[in-house]
């Protein structure tokens, strides 16, 4: 039974997930079942990976096509994994980001960004991998390999702090320095499960990129956090 203010939305949220999440106040269905159904509800799609053409993406797509409100939506999922778009939108949302440039040209990158740099690939199968470079030679090699022989540009960011990678579970992270930023990123992109790559300078975080997780990276404690936060996630539906 639902009670208190939880009642206002708990019965309206359908959780679609292949993870072992539990919530007594929400119906939970698997992705395969959902994709073959015409279930209409407010959908909370909890998956480790929302990248384009992954099951997490298709669940959101199916929900959108049926006119449901869904977290996350397809546009946000697409944007979040494209580092320059992720940073552009994060900056507009008031989140501190690292200075960056997008190019396939070493000279252009060096003109805009100082060493050391973090280089993020933008090719179709990239997922949060990156290289840290300290010299023109290593930058050249990174642009060539991560850009698939310069077929795709890369996103180069100035590295001026300590790199940190945190799991964000419905906007909650273990690292208190990154907590406020993670909540803001969740408000903007609403990806229930993701990894944030951040650099920290004097306890101030600067957002660098976002990546998906593998199911194996989610511990029983992580699944517990997700399960507990399912109810609160309802407030993000309009």
């Amino acid at each position: 039974m639902c009670s208190g203010h939880v009642v206002s939305w708990c019965s309206l949220v359908l959780v679609v997930s292949d993870l072992d999440v539990k919530n007594p106040e929400s119906q939970i269905v698997g992705s395969g079942t959902f994709l073959k159904s015409r279930l209409q509800d407010r959908i909370l799609n909890i998956q480790p990976d929302y990248r384009y053409m992954r099951i997490g993406y298709y669940v959101s797509m199916q929900a959108e096509v049926m006119g449901c409100q869904v977290i996350p939506n397809c546009q946000d999922s697409l944007d979040a994994y494209k580092t320059p778009i992720f940073l552009l939108r994060a900056r507009k949302a008031g989140i501190a980001i690292s200075p960056y440039v997008v190019s396939d040209n070493v000279k252009d990158i060096m003109f805009e960004v100082d060493f050391p740099m973090i280089i993020f690939p933008l090719h179709p199968t990239s997922n949060g991998g990156y290289k840290v470079v300290h010299s023109e030679g290593s930058l050249y090699r990174a642009v060539k390999s991560l850009g698939m022989n310069q077929k795709y540009p890369v996103c180069a960011e100035n590295l001026f702090g300590r790199l940190v990678s945190v799991k964000s579970l419905l906007g909650s992270v273990g690292d208190p320095i990154v907590a406020e930023m993670a909540a803001k990123v969740y408000e903007e992109f609403k990806l229930p499960v993701c990894r944030l790559i951040v650099q920290v300078v004097e306890r101030k975080p600067y957002l660098c990129s976002l990546a998906s997780l593998h199911s194996e990276e989610l511990t029983p404690e992580d699944l517990q956090v997700l399960s507990e936060r399912i109810g609160a996630a309802g407030k993000y539906f309009g």
Partner: peptide, 25 residues
């Protein structure tokens, strides 16, 4: 294609208020 650089170009234009063909959607 949503995976290609053209999507990034389209989205940068869209976020900056340009008229764009093809738009990100």
């Amino acid at each position: 294609d949503p995976s290609y650089t053209a999507y990034i170009a389209s989205k940068i234009a869209w976020e900056n208020g340009l008229r764009v063909l093809d738009n990100p959607h």
